[in-house]
Design a protein around this nucleic acid. Structure first.
Lengths: 238, 238
DNA sequence: CGTAGTCTTGAATGACCTCAAACGCTGTGG
DNA sequence: CCACAGCGTTTGAGGTCATTCAAGACTACG
């Protein structure tokens, strides 16, 4: 049997912000930990939601698939974020797939437990409201971007977002800290992997990024921002 | 001074579902009614949210404007729906403009009152969670559509959505029950009014729709669904 | 060392946008 | 009541961004 997780992991999770130690302990008691190796699906679109999830460690990709098989990456989940909870608040069916893109550790709360916890601790419901609200906002922004911007700017925006969420300083600049393919970026921005590849190649030759197999390093974040904001390109160097 | 609104109007509003008569009365006491003539802005993007709103009668358009002035229609609000509440749950700034597209009557609750009501009646918070969850889902679907579908299908989807929300049976078919310009449809689907016009013209010549100045009637909803789902076109008639 | 998955790059096509002009309603003011 | 101005709409022509089709190179892994 897996050891009950350390309550400390819940600290810093926005969903449980503002709860006292007792409440946190109660929350932890209901949680079930699950190790998920890279590449493993955690749940699938259309399934009945048996549980809500929170990521302790690793990285999870949320992908929605359309009727004709077209895929869209809705978001990447990092440590401390919850996922798969939307189903609990709405019709009970997961609206997307969740797949671990790195070896991950997740906690899950059975739907019933989640409901009980929210009833007993209204702060959780309020936190959830804030979180879902923030996400709605973010998706609305992406909708605006996809609707009005050209591909290059959208790719720039996507990378900037990823850097904010999962950027890690390295010698050459800032690295996106998980495996990210051109296909992934294409599915985040509503384009094809070909166009992403061409765009990254162009940026590479301008020294803005360095990228390879499932890996992207941003060397000049400001240049990327300039592209995203459609500012005049910066002077060749500096 | 305007008369305090009839509590009956709140019945049927998802946000206040499940509240008893006393609670409803309390909610009503905090509400302030406001008549809004067609064309009038109710709030503007970037403003601090002074209040949350619910529409009693009429129709309101929610439009987000990007840094370069590009506009995207986020949704149309009909009677019974709340709007402008996202700001309350997040950073306090309205993320979009709201404009009455028909003469309208709205109720508003000052932010502070809204918070108090939610604390006193957790059911409201839970309802809000469901509503925001549903919207998040819907926006995610639109994001997928805009990212993966061609313009014609997107326009078909948009019209179908509008018919569901605001369709009214008329002799010729189903009419979208408020003034809707090509520009509006373009801003809902991430295209230009020109393309929308061409598309509607084509559909008109196939007898699928009838449309004119700020007005659309769908004559063959099933044909529109066929286009949206990318099925083979139906036989010429019937 | 072979194989599968990822990435790159070229060439051709095409969907849609941009630019441009004109038309027709609708409401308004003379 | 009519004329006109304004707005929403239509339609054509041309251009272009990005997709599609196609082939090959690279890399990781078994």
């Amino acid at each position: 049997m897996p050891p009950s997780p350390d309550p400390a992991v819940l600290r810093g999770m926005p969903l449980f912000a503002g709860l006292d130690a007792d409440a946190l302990a109660e929350v932890v008691r209901h949680a079930r930990p699950r190790r998920v190796p890279k590449g493993t699906p955690i749940f699938s679109q259309g399934e009945t939601a048996a549980a809500g999830h929170a990521l302790i460690d690793g990285r999870v990709k949320i992908v929605q698939t359309g009727p004709d098989g077209q895929q869209v990456v809705m978001r990447f989940i990092g440590p401390g974020e919850m996922f798969g909870t939307l189903a609990i608040f709405t019709d009970g069916l997961y609206p997307a797939d969740a797949v671990a893109v790195s070896d991950s550790l997740a906690l899950s709360w059975p739907t019933a437990a989640m409901t009980v916890l929210m009833e007993r601790h209204p702060a959780i419901a309020m936190n959830a409201l804030t979180i879902v609200g923030d996400r709605l906002r973010e998706v609305q922004n992406r909708l605006r971007e996809v609707s009005t911007e050209r591909v290059e700017r959208r790719i720039a925006h996507a990378l900037i977002r990823l850097v904010r969420q999962a950027g890690r300083r390295v010698e050459a600049g800032v690295e996106i800290d998980f495996p990210l393919s051109r296909q992934d970026v294409a599915e985040m921005t509503g384009t094809t992997l070909h166009t992403v590849s061409r765009t990254l190649s162009a940026w590479e030759s301008q020294g803005i990024v360095e990228s390879g197999r499932q890996q992207v390093v941003i060397r000049k974040p400001h240049a990327l921002v300039a592209i995203a904001e459609d500012l005049p390109p910066l002077r060749p160097d500096r």
